[in-house]
Design a protein around this nucleic acid. Structure first.
Length: 647
DNA sequence: TCAGCCGCATTTTTT
DNA sequence: ATGCGGCTGA
């Protein structure tokens, strides 16, 4: 074991130092935007290690993979070790997202009561929606929208409710039907030996609450639990945290209620607002010194958030100067808006030497990126869109991953039906349906179903061509399944790619085909990071990650304000500052929209631009756009209003 | 089984 | 505008 480098606390302000060195117990750190939250968190862990705490007893939880990676890297820096050094304290510490941590825990738990094995697969939203559609068609409920059902199920799960609870609480016919669909959905998931994202948290919570021995085992193991972005936790996550800290009671959380922007995902601001009720002996520490932004930007943000009725009043302050005024510019339409932004970026780059990676364009929704991307490439400004269509959910990528999932699991129905039908080879919906039915009544075993279709009782019902294709498919699949435990994932994927003819099937000369082939190659590339026999591990990580490793290049970042949380840029453009976009027209929580705008504004370090379009085309229709009411809530003296362009 | 056509909804947002 | 799901005819 390497002795940690002595920790230097002299660079911290008094509040930060208190947060780092506070005695173990329930601790709530209110950390305003840019107040050194990650710094505190990493110093806290390093300090604990310095106190002689066993790293294996430390559990540090984030919401995103990116945040987890950053925490690991910064901690490594503090400790003077490499992030992946197997001999460092980091290696035995648990740092990761809620979903990744609790998936790991769930795999070690008894799962019979849930009808799944410890080798369960994780269904993404797309898979889940397909399962819901099946349940809907089974139930003959054509009038219910899949979205609404998915929503209802997720809401229940985020509250910690199982199908029986939902049924018991149903107060009208519609809710009763939804609850029944929830039950049907859950049965289908279990049949596929699969869980969804919400289950990764719900199932461990249920298991821990029912099994006292299990709970005390894990609660004893985790001596210190630390949580980032605590304001975004939902009921299940809070319960998990209570369970895991029930023995040592060292729960250190950091968050900011002003940056709570995920209530639509079940996040409850109450978790942070009433932390002291959950933990009466909790210490509260407030970090309100901002190290990020000019006072102009901070004052604008402070003023904006006062319009919200809920929340803990706190004013961020900074010793930075006033800096430049916030630029507001209204353009004719979204194309001109994009053009203005691109020109301004080029001007900053050429005249002031600001490198492109120091600039970001933030938007309310991903669909706004279309116009921006067009003008960015036209203007020769390098850019990358963060978020957007997730790499691992692109059709061609999912096709390939489905093959891998079918290799690993004989029960993963979604993967089997997808792999069997892509690429097209004469096995259509009708054949898949027969296989699915057979599997359902034979232990959900798709290998058995395929055998039955090739030469068993199902064979008479299949066409000769389909039977021939199935025979080849199952031969290949079983061969790979035998190797999967020992061969290099990359080797295996290369073989899958060539034998399945997936790559060729996307070689149709269309403009998207090259992109799709590149994406498939990127999957092969990503597999290079895994050791022999680690295919399942790769699939786990893929299920919980959205991004492929995107190379760091000098480029402008384009992303939603949601995706920007936790980041900072010297120059920030917030586009689409219009009523209907900010706040979003169909949002029922204006205060959350305001917090989102607050998050956007507080990403900026030196220079902030707000842009709006006077008219905007949506779905082929052009409509006039009013300026966002939020812009009017900013102090006028902090704004530099450029003359609006007129049509 | 599948290509091609039509009608319709879509664009809110970590994992 | 565009892409998806559903339907139809070959």
């Amino acid at each position: 074991m390497i002795t940690p480098r002595p920790l230097d606390l002299s660079a911290l302000n008094p509040a930060q130092r208190e947060a780092v060195t506070v005695p173990p117990g329930p601790v709530l750190v209110f950390a305003g935007a840019g107040s050194g939250k990650t710094r505190c968190l990493t110093h806290r862990i390093a300090w604990l290690l310095g106190q002689g705490v066993d790293p294996a007893g430390i559990l540090a939880i984030t919401f995103t993979n990116k945040a987890a990676r950053e925490m690991r890297e910064r901690l490594a820096g503090l400790l003077g070790v490499l992030p992946e050094d197997p001999n460092s304290p980091l290696a035995s510490m648990r740092i990761g997202t809620f979903h990744a941590q609790f998936m790991r825990l769930l795999r070690t738990m008894p799962l019979d009561e849930f009808g799944i094995t410890s080798r369960f697969r994780v269904y993404d939203e797309d898979d889940s929606e397909r399962v819901v559609k099946q349940a809907l068609s089974d139930a003959g409920a054509a009038d219910l929208k899949p979205d609404a059902v998915v929503d209802a199920i997720s809401t229940w799960k985020n509250l910690g409710l199982q199908p029986d609870d939902a049924l018991a609480r149903a107060s009208d016919a519609r809710e009763y039907r939804l609850a029944n669909l929830y039950a049907a959905y859950q049965i289908k998931l279990a049949a596929s030996d699969a869980v969804d994202f919400d289950d990764l948290l719900l199932l461990p919570m249920l298991a821990l609450s029912r099994d006292n021995a299990l709970r005390s085992k894990w609660a004893s193991r985790f001596r210190h639990v630390l949580v980032d972005e605590f304001q975004d936790t939902n009921a299940v996550q809070l319960e998990l945290l209570k369970q895991l800290s029930s023995v040592h009671r060292s729960l250190w959380v950091v968050g900011d209620d002003s940056q709570s922007i995920y209530s639509w995902r079940g996040a409850q601001v109450e978790n942070i607002l009433s932390f002291e009720e959950s933990f009466p002996d909790a210490r509260r520490i407030v970090l309100d010194q901002n190290y990020r932004s000019t006072t102009t930007i901070l004052n604008a943000a402070n003023q904006l958030i006062t319009a919200n009725s809920r929340g803990i009043a706190k004013k961020l302050w900074s010793s930075h100067g006033a800096g430049h005024g916030i630029v507001f510019k209204r353009l004719i339409d979204e194309d001109n808006e994009a053009l203005f932004i691109v020109r301004e970026m080029r001007r900053l780059h050429v005249q002031l030497g600001v490198s492109y990676e120091k600039m970001a364009i933030l938007m309310r929704k991903n669909s706004q990126s279309r116009a921006l991307e067009a003008k960015l490439s036209l203007g020769g400004v390098p850019y990358r869109v963060i978020g957007g269509v997730k790499f691992w959910t692109r059709v061609e990528v999912k096709d390939l991953v489905s093959w891998l999932r079918a290799i690993v699991s004989p029960r993963d129905g979604m993967a089997w039906s997808r792999a069997l039908s892509k690429p097209k080879r004469g096995i259509g919906a009708a054949s898949i349906e027969k296989l699915a039915e057979y599997a359902a009544s034979h232990g959900n075993d798709w290998v058995a179903a395929c055998s039955a279709a090739v030469s068993g009782e199902l064979a008479v019902t299949m066409r000769a061509a389909a039977r021939e294709q199935l025979s080849q498919f199952i031969l290949l699949r079983n061969g790979w399944a035998n190797e999967a435990g020992s061969v290099e994932p990359q080797q295996l994927i290369r073989r899958v790619l060539s034998s399945s003819h997936l790559l060729e099937s996307y070689d149709d000369g269309s403009d998207t085909s090259q992109r799709r082939q590149d994406n498939l190659a990127e999957v092969v590339n990503a597999a290079g990071a895994y050791e022999p026999g680690q295919l399942e591990r790769m699939l786990d990580e893929v299920a919980l990650s959205s991004e492929a490793d995107n190379e760091a290049k000098e480029a402008v970042s384009v992303m939603t304000m949601h995706a920007a949380k936790g980041l900072e840029f010297p120059v920030v453009f917030i586009c689409g500052c219009e009523a209907g976009i900010l706040p979003m027209i169909n949002s029922d929580d204006v205060e959350e929209e305001r917090r989102l705008f607050y998050v956007g504004i507080t990403r900026a370090q030196r220079l902030l631009y707000l842009t709006a379009a006077a008219q905007r085309s949506t779905w082929g229709k052009t409509s006039p756009q009013a300026v966002s009411p939020f812009v009017r809530e900013l102090p006028a003296d902090l704004l530099t209003k450029l003359p609006a362009d007129r049509a």
